[in-house]
């Protein structure tokens, strides 16, 4: 009699559930995990510097950095540094990204432009743009011009490469469809090629804009009185680690902001993706 219950419950004595081996490979946003990683790292640093197993020369105490940051904010210097930096970043990156996207689309569409420019882009991509700063100073002057140029040039190359790759990946059957309905060339580019390339262009922009932030600091090495880069370099030359880190934190926040903004744009513009 004891037997009947098992045979009903499990049908057969040696039956078991099929092992699950699907799932994974589909990362989903988990809201607070990112913030948690930061918090844990900072807490460990704070604990280490207080307890003494991280020496003050290795890493500043996070609370001291926070204090420096507060002073910076209260003295009004934060915005005197942030203002010029942001305008350099915005102007430089806008010039670089818009020229980059245009050239990338042209490379994606025209055989001669592709054959002519792809090797050129490959040749200038690996040049550390920082090395060209003196050249830019000669060409565009020590003022804002050389800074815009450096940032624009640095954003340009990765944007071009990402854009023409994205244009190459636009579904050809959609273009064929546009032609078969007699759409004009310009309509096909505007309504089919550009939206189709948008996912690739946006993910390229993530990289280009991060590079723009890196180059911002480089651009401010020469002849900049104000700017996050100038602030960091000054602190660095004085080995003032608290101020150095305060500056670095600002750059990181800038990076996180840019990435969040692009994420928001992607969610709005690319909600058609399944």
């Amino acid at each position: 009699m004891a037997d009947t219950t098992t045979s009903q419950g499990a049908a057969h004595s040696d039956s078991r559930a099929v092992a699950f081996r699907g799932g994974g490979f589909a990362p989903r946003p988990r809201r607070w995990v990112g913030a948690l990683v930061f918090v844990v790292l900072i807490l460990v640093a704070e604990w280490g510097t207080r307890a003494g197993w991280i020496s003050a020369l290795t890493l500043p105490k996070p609370t001291d950095v926070l204090e420096t940051f507060r002073e910076l904010y209260e003295s009004g210097m934060l915005f005197r540094h942030l203002g010029p930096s942001l305008s350099r970043l915005v102007v430089g990156a806008a010039i670089g990204a818009s020229i980059g996207i245009s050239v990338g689309v042209l490379i994606g569409l025209f055989s001669y432009i592709r054959s002519g420019l792809v090797p050129l882009v490959a040749a200038i991509f690996p040049i550390p743009k920082i090395a060209l700063l003196p050249l830019f100073v000669i060409w565009f002057g020590i003022g804002e011009g050389s800074k815009y140029a450096l940032i624009a040039f640095g954003t340009f190359t990765p944007t071009v490469v990402a854009t023409y790759g994205a244009v190459d990946n636009v579904d050809r059957t959609l273009i064929r469809m546009g032609q078969s309905f007699g759409l004009s060339w310009w309509s096909i580019v505007r309504k089919i090629v550009l939206p189709g390339a948008m996912p690739g262009i946006l993910s390229g922009l993530r990289i280009s804009l991060a590079i723009a932030i890196i180059l911002l600091v480089a651009a401010e090495m020469l002849g900049a009185e104000y700017g996050i880069g100038a602030y960091i370099l000054e602190a660095g030359s004085l080995y003032d680690l608290e101020r150095l880190f305060a500056g670095v934190v600002i750059l990181s926040l800038l990076g996180v902001t840019v990435s969040t903004v692009i994420g928001a744009i992607e969610r709005r513009l690319l909600n058609w993706r399944s």
């Binding site: 469809m177 078969s180 939206p195 993706r273």
Partner: peptide, 18 residues
């Protein structure tokens, strides 16, 4: 007739963003 010769494709060819 706006487009006398008009295709219908095997894979539909709809713009996914429209």
């Amino acid at each position: 007739s706006l487009n006398p010769l008009t295709y219908i494709f095997q894979d539909f060819a709809l713009l996914p963003w429209r």
